[in-house]
Amino acid sequence: MPYDHKEGAYPLGQWIAEQRRAYGAGQMTGRRAERLEALGMVWDATDAAFQENLAAARVYYEQHWTLCAPRTATALDRPIGQWLSNLRRPGALAGHPEREAALAAIDPDWKPAWPVTWQRHYAAVRELLAEEDTTLTELLPGVTVHGMDVGKWLARQREHAVWQALLPQQRERLEQLGITALPAPKGTPAKARGGAGSAFERGVEALRQYRLREGHLTVPRTHVETLPDGTQVKLGVFLSNTKTRRAKLTEERRKILAGLGFDWAT
């Protein structure tokens, strides 16, 4: 309850704040505490704010089918998008596993290891296909949901290069909807596709591994990633050099990087 809330002329918000102060200072009898708890009293104001935002998150999910909201999104007059974005930061919920569990109960993919924009599009496609009268053949470029061109997005995910850049978990979600990759373009030189064992391919593999573990792609320049076969990739340097030379990248490689979530690759 907001501190300045009143019931009629009575300053109820201030009164509740005083009860929390008295409880925290050990100045409240057990009987009074029990009576307030029976009404749903939350002694920790921080937890109370979390519960209020959580209620707004439920409303947002019901309307948008995902908690990967844009930062500007609101629900119940609360800045739910910014709130969720803050909670997705590393360590934001450290020491509060019950809060993370509460968010996961609403949306298991509320904090994905891939870009939240990808998850928003996927959730929209998933819900459209859940409708009995919607098929994949109808989701063509130009079909929009909540301002997103999901048809264009879907076509892009099926491109061979983009599909290969997706994490296994992303491909699994798409395949569960009956979405598969298009065949690789015929006659595309192996070098343009990355080439087995090439430095670019190793860098992409290291990026996927880093993102899956860390949940983001903000890589320190000095970071070195070790692949399962023991190969060490100077990932920070690779990423910095690739961004600097993006104008010289082939279209295929730009698509792979864009599929990983690097907007600058496009």
Rank of each mutant, 00 (worst) to 15 (best):
D4T: 09
H5F: 13
K6V: 12
L12I: 09
G13T: 13
G13A: 14
W15L: 15
I16A: 14
A17E: 05
E18G: 12
R20G: 02
R21L: 05
Y23E: 15
T29Y: 04
G30M: 14
R31H: 09
R32V: 15
A33P: 15
R35P: 10
E37Y: 06
E37F: 03
A38G: 15
L39C: 15
G40T: 07
G40I: 11
V42G: 06
W43V: 14
A45E: 06
F50A: 12
Q51S: 06
A57K: 05
V59G: 03
Y60T: 08
Y61G: 09
E62K: 04
W65G: 00
L67E: 04
L67F: 08
P70E: 07
P70S: 07
A75P: 06
L76E: 04
R78N: 07
R78D: 07
P79D: 05
I80H: 03
Q82S: 11
Q82C: 08
Q82R: 10
L84S: 01
S85E: 08
N86E: 12
L87Q: 00
R88K: 08
P90G: 02
A94P: 00
A102P: 09
D107W: 00
D109I: 04
D109N: 08
W110G: 10
W110P: 05
K111N: 01
P112S: 07
A113C: 07
A113T: 14
V116E: 09
V116I: 06
R120E: 05
H121W: 02
V125Q: 02
R126F: 11
E127R: 00
L129V: 05
E131F: 06
E131D: 10
D133I: 09
L136M: 06
T137E: 10
T137K: 03
L139K: 07
L140S: 12
L140Q: 14
V143W: 06
V143A: 11
T144R: 11
T144I: 06
D149I: 14
G151S: 01
G151M: 01
W153I: 14
R158E: 01
E159Y: 08
H160F: 01
Q170T: 01
R171P: 02
E172T: 05
P183M: 08
P185H: 14
K186G: 15
G187D: 13
G187Y: 09
P189T: 13
A190P: 09
A190N: 13
G197K: 13
G197A: 08
G197N: 13
A199Q: 14
A199I: 15
R202E: 07
G203H: 08
V204W: 01
E205K: 12
E205Y: 03
E205S: 10
L207W: 12
R208E: 03
R211E: 07
L212K: 05
H216C: 14
H216M: 13
H216I: 14
L217E: 13
V219W: 03
R221M: 02
H223A: 13
V224E: 15
T226P: 00
L227W: 02
L227G: 03
G230Q: 06
T231A: 10
Q232G: 04
V233E: 11
L235Y: 03
L235I: 08
G236N: 03
V237W: 00
F238D: 06
T242A: 13
T244W: 02
T244D: 06
L249Q: 00
T250G: 11
T250C: 11
E251G: 11
E252N: 05
R254A: 10
K255N: 04
I256P: 10
G261A: 12
D263H: 03
W264P: 02
A265E: 01
